[in-house]
Design a protein around this nucleic acid. Structure first.
Length: 515
RNA sequence: GGUUUCGUGGCCGAGUGGUUAGGCAGCGGUCUGCAAAACCGUCCACAGCGGUUCGACUCCGCUCGAAACCUCCA
């Protein structure tokens, strides 16, 4: 299968042509959330970024298997510094079974990702469900001689690995620096080298998340689950591995080493990394305590928020930046996104109302053709400069943008150009041919909705009811306007405005929208 | 200190060796019962200093500044 898709491979620090290993199949693994807290804006970035990748690959016709894990074990807690599991700590504090915590937050994650219109991946494996695979992988690494066991824990031997392979090739680290600069952690004395990392960690008696293993009761190391699960579901060599830039080191670097050691070769062809969301120039993150949860965004209940922002506003805000750029949060930027999105959606709605130009008169029974609504005989509409070519250019530029490392901001700019053309046509300043209208509609359907994954939030589930109701109200108001009963007309408009419904009066009647 | 990356107009954010990104905000106009929307026009830019070049915001170097990672974190 041919595509002209180029993506930025962190491994080579350059854009590479996407050539899947087994076309038409494409495999993608993305590091998912650790389910011990409510999803926040930081979680939305990678989810939406790789949703965009997923959607575009699907659009191009690839048969995509997209795997995104749920981390429900592992991960040490820094502030306690005792090597305890994040989820376990939370469980103890809240007097719950650890899996209750994980289940609760996993469910929350799914709900909020759904609201952001993030497609569910093909497989969402949980680390806790893949203990056997992880233990087997540790054994393979041990057999290959790149790991050693100490007191019921198993560590990866980075120094030995580096004699044959390059630990640091993804992140650009130099081993010597790592050996001298790595912070001293608990259990450090067990390690042969400061740069070594745990594959399996012995569970202390008070540790409530534990599994049996050949080395005694314990839990898997921080990087193991992704290697084990990506191998299981995507094979020993697959196309794309994604995640946040903050995971580059040590997480992804260690994944490479684990797979190389266990399998004998690298497992990932393209490494993709999304950048961070910042707040006041600083990373928005759990550990910094400056994050805003998605629930808070949707309800507006956070001191830093001037108002509530809808899921689609958040999604659009994120897609307005290229995924490898940092994205700075501010109310001003979010409000700009909200307005821009509204304009885009209104443009699409307008597009549906532009009447098709007249078909050529049929031979035979012709009467004088009716004047189409929206085209005034007095001021002949000027043909579109460049004719159909201009719409086709728009179409092509959307593909060009997506093919250039998923440049969603460029796609959005093209869509705005489309809106400008649509509005001009609706204003009788330009005329669109039937093929042009068709093509414009396709551009929006494909790029705005299918690929960027935007959806209309206007009326939710009761759209039909709302539409009918509004039609009724506006027709009543129209009657009062025709008799120049401005009092009644304005009364209706003001009342609707209080319900956050904006009425716009145009030449062909009134339209409405919800703020 | 090391690694990686970045510094674009009032705000957010693309892109490029010589041509308008786009959105939001501002200003002027058209339209309109009013309002909103829309349309047209318009203002505001590429951190600083050198170098390469006919020409750099775009390439190279330096300086200054910022961020992420080096400890779990999307």
């Amino acid at each position: 299968m041919e595509s002209n898709l180029y993506l930025y491979n962190t491994l080579s620090r350059s854009k590479e042509k996407f050539e899947p290993i087994n076309p038409p199949f494409a495999g993608m693994y993305v590091c998912g959330p650790t389910v011990y807290g409510d999803p926040h804006l930081g979680h939305a970035r990678p989810a939406i970024t790789f949703d965009l990748v997923f959607r575009y690959l699907l659009h191009l016709g690839f048969k995509v298997r997209y795997v995104r894990n749920i981390t429900d074990v592992g991960h040490l807690v820094a502030d306690l510094d005792e090597g305890e599991d994040k989820i376990a700590v939370k469980a103890r504090v809240e007097q719950l079974e650890p899996m209750e915590i994980a289940q609760y937050y996993a469910d929350r994650y799914f709900i909020y990702m759904d609201s952001l219109n993030v497609k569910r991946p093909s497989i969402e494996p949980r680390a806790s469900g893949h203990m056997i695979e992880q233990i087997l992988m540790v054994q393979k690494i041990l057999e290959a001689g790149y790991a050693y066991e100490v007191n019921g824990s198993v560590y990866f031997d980075v120094e030995k690995y580096s004699k044959t392979y390059e630990y640091g090739k993804l992140s650009g680290r130099v081993l010597e620096d790592l050996m001298t600069n790595t912070r001293t952690l608990e259990g450090q004395d067990e390690k042969r080298n400061a740069a070594d990392f745990a594959l399996w960690k012995k569970a202390q008696p008070e540790h409530i998340m534990r599994w049996p293993s050949p080395w005694g009761d314990g839990f898997p190391g921080w990087h193991l689950e992704c290697s084990a699960m990506s191998t299981k579901y995507l094979g020993e060599y697959f196309d794309i591995h994604g995640g946040g830039m903050d995971l580059l080191f040590p997480h992804h670097e260690s994944e490479i080493a684990q797979c190389q050691a266990a399998i004998g070769h690298e497992s990932v062809k393209y490494w993709l990394h999304n950048n961070m969301v910042t707040i006041n120039g600083q990373k928005m993150g759990k550990s910094l305590g400056n994050f805003i949860t998605l629930e808070e965004f949707f309800t507006g209940t956070h001191a830093a928020l001037q108002q509530a922002y809808s899921p689609m506003t958040i999604r659009f805000f994120i897609l307005q930046a290229q995924y490898r750029s940092t994205l700075d949060f501010s109310n001003e930027a979010l409000q700009a996104a909200e307005k821009g999105l509204k304009k885009l959606m209104a443009g699409y709605e307008t597009l549906g109302k532009i009447p098709l130009p007249l078909p050529l008169p049929k031979q035979g029974g012709e009467t004088s053709p009716p004047t189409p609504i929206g085209i005034q005989a007095t001021s002949p509409p000027t043909p579109l400069p460049g004719g159909e070519g201009r719409i086709r250019d728009l179409w092509m530029s959307c593909y060009a943008a997506m093919n250039d490392d998923f440049n969603s901001p460029m796609v959005i700019a093209s869509l705005f150009e489309g809106v400008r053309i649509i509005n001009s046509a609706a204003d009788n300043k330009e005329i669109l041919t039937a093929p042009e209208l068709e093509m414009l509609k396709n551009i929006f359907d494909i790029f705005l909705f299918d690929i960027l994954g935007m959806k209309n939030e206007k009326g939710g589930d009761n759209q039909d009811v709302l539409d009918g109701l509004m039609q009724l109200v506006l027709s009543i108001r129209q009657k009062s306007r025709e008799t120049k009963d401005w009092g009644t007309s304005d009364q209706i408009r003001d009342a609707l405005q209080k319900l956050k419904i904006t009425v716009k009066d145009g030449k062909e009647g009134s339209s409405w929208g919800i703020e």
